[in-house]
Amino acid sequence: MHIFDHTLLKIIQVMISLFAGVLFLQSGLDKVFDFKGNKGYIQSVFANTFLSRVSGLLFIIITILEVLAGMASFFGGIFYFIEGQKDFAILGLELSLLSLFCLFTGQRIAKDYTGAASLVGYFLLMAFGLFVFALVG
Results as ranks from 00 to 15, higher is better:
5 D>Y: 08
104 F>G: 04
22 V>Y: 03
1 M>D: 11
70 G>K: 00
80 Y>L: 05
118 S>K: 14
101 F>S: 11
121 G>N: 09
15 M>Y: 09
137 G>H: 12
116 A>D: 13
14 V>M: 05
30 D>C: 09
33 F>M: 13
85 Q>P: 04
44 S>C: 09
103 L>I: 07
24 F>S: 01
93 L>D: 00
136 V>H: 15
104 F>K: 06
108 R>C: 11
46 F>I: 07
87 D>H: 10
11 I>C: 13
76 G>K: 00
126 M>A: 05
39 K>P: 04
86 K>L: 04
61 I>K: 07
82 I>G: 06
44 S>N: 15
34 D>C: 04
113 Y>F: 12
62 I>D: 03
30 D>I: 06
45 V>K: 14
16 I>Q: 08
85 Q>A: 12
51 L>C: 08
15 M>S: 09
54 V>E: 13
107 Q>A: 07
18 L>D: 03
77 G>P: 00
90 I>L: 01
76 G>Y: 00
94 E>A: 10
61 I>G: 02
37 G>S: 10
98 L>D: 00
50 F>K: 15
53 R>N: 15
11 I>N: 12
57 L>D: 11
36 K>L: 09
94 E>W: 07
131 F>H: 11
1 M>S: 12
126 M>D: 01
4 F>G: 08
41 Y>D: 12
80 Y>F: 13
69 A>I: 02
50 F>Q: 14
15 M>E: 11
48 N>K: 12
127 A>S: 07
5 D>H: 14
37 G>H: 11
31 K>S: 10
44 S>I: 04
86 K>Q: 13
118 S>M: 12
114 T>Q: 15
93 L>A: 02
35 F>D: 12
132 V>E: 11
67 V>I: 12
47 A>D: 12
42 I>H: 01
76 G>S: 04
129 G>W: 00
83 E>R: 14
56 G>M: 01
10 K>E: 14
34 D>G: 11
58 L>Y: 10
32 V>F: 11
36 K>F: 06
114 T>C: 08
70 G>P: 05
122 Y>S: 00
50 F>Y: 11
106 G>Q: 05
88 F>H: 10
39 K>W: 07
98 L>Q: 01
86 K>I: 05
60 I>H: 11
82 I>L: 15
28 G>E: 01
37 G>L: 09
93 L>S: 00
53 R>K: 15
122 Y>T: 02
55 S>Q: 07
102 C>G: 12
6 H>W: 09
55 S>E: 09
53 R>P: 04
28 G>S: 10
49 T>L: 10
102 C>S: 09
67 V>H: 07
136 V>M: 13
60 I>S: 14
9 L>I: 09
93 L>Q: 00
95 L>C: 05
66 E>T: 00
103 L>T: 01
76 G>P: 02
107 Q>R: 15
3 I>F: 14
38 N>V: 04
28 G>C: 08
122 Y>D: 02
63 T>C: 15
4 F>K: 12
